[in-house]
Amino acid sequence: MDELLKGFPVVIELPVVWGEMDAFQHVNNVVYFRYMETARIAYFLKMNYMKIMEETGLGPILASTQCRYRFPLTYPDSVSVGARVPHVEEDRFRMEYRIVSHRHQKVAAEGDALIVSYDYRKRTKAPLPEAVRRYILEMEERRT
């Protein structure tokens, strides 16, 4: 399991819940996005993004996201979801996710998202706060 999530500075563990299954007897595709969202928020909390947003009005906004399904998850199971940021630009960064099944010990899905820095007071795109850029670089440096 550790090898499958090597290089991800934030890893969370979540149960696969019976109610996440759909009529096709596997976890519904939308649920994978919830798993990735939960990992994204864990990453933001680890780097104090919410506090920075509160102080500056500058915060993250999701511009796009996608998921590549590798195999269907089913109940009962648990997953570990890794999050990392391989690329940072002036006003945005790309976040990657990996969802790993505990029961099968393999990657169930991989995804990514484009996160844009947004000024919630002015309602416009804004440069990434320097503190956010620094936290990301520090967290990603520690993963290598």
Rank of each mutant, 00 (worst) to 15 (best):
F93L: 12
E37V: 08
F8A: 01
S101R: 08
R103C: 00
M53R: 14
I12C: 03
N48S: 01
I99R: 04
I61T: 14
K106D: 12
L128C: 05
E20D: 15
L5K: 01
P76A: 11
F8C: 00
R40K: 12
P127K: 00
P72T: 06
P129W: 05
E141A: 15
F33R: 03
A83Y: 09
T124L: 14
R103W: 06
R142H: 12
L114S: 02
I12S: 00
Q105L: 01
V17Q: 15
E3T: 12
N29M: 04
F44P: 03
L62E: 01
Q66D: 02
A23V: 09
R98V: 11
A126L: 05
V88Q: 10
T56P: 01
G82E: 09
E55V: 03
S101D: 05
R40D: 03
P15G: 13
F71T: 02
N28T: 12
R123N: 14
E141G: 14
H102N: 03
R98S: 07
R94K: 15
A23S: 11
V88Y: 10
E90I: 10
E138Q: 15
M21Y: 07
V10S: 04
I52L: 13
L73E: 03
E96F: 13
E96K: 11
S64L: 00
F24M: 13
P9L: 04
M21T: 12
A113F: 12
W18R: 14
L128V: 07
Y69T: 05
E130Y: 03
G59K: 00
H102R: 06
E37D: 04
R121W: 08
E110T: 10
P72H: 05
V81K: 05
W18F: 15
T144N: 14
E54P: 00
R68K: 12
E89G: 12
V100C: 08
L45M: 14
R92N: 07
P9W: 10
V107R: 00
I52F: 03
M21E: 13
T38E: 14
E20G: 14
K46V: 05
L5E: 00
A108T: 05
Y35H: 02
P76Q: 03
R123P: 10
S117A: 15
S78H: 14
E3P: 00
E90Q: 11
W18K: 13
M139P: 01
Y97L: 02
L58H: 10
I52K: 01
K6V: 06
P9H: 08
R123L: 15
I12V: 05
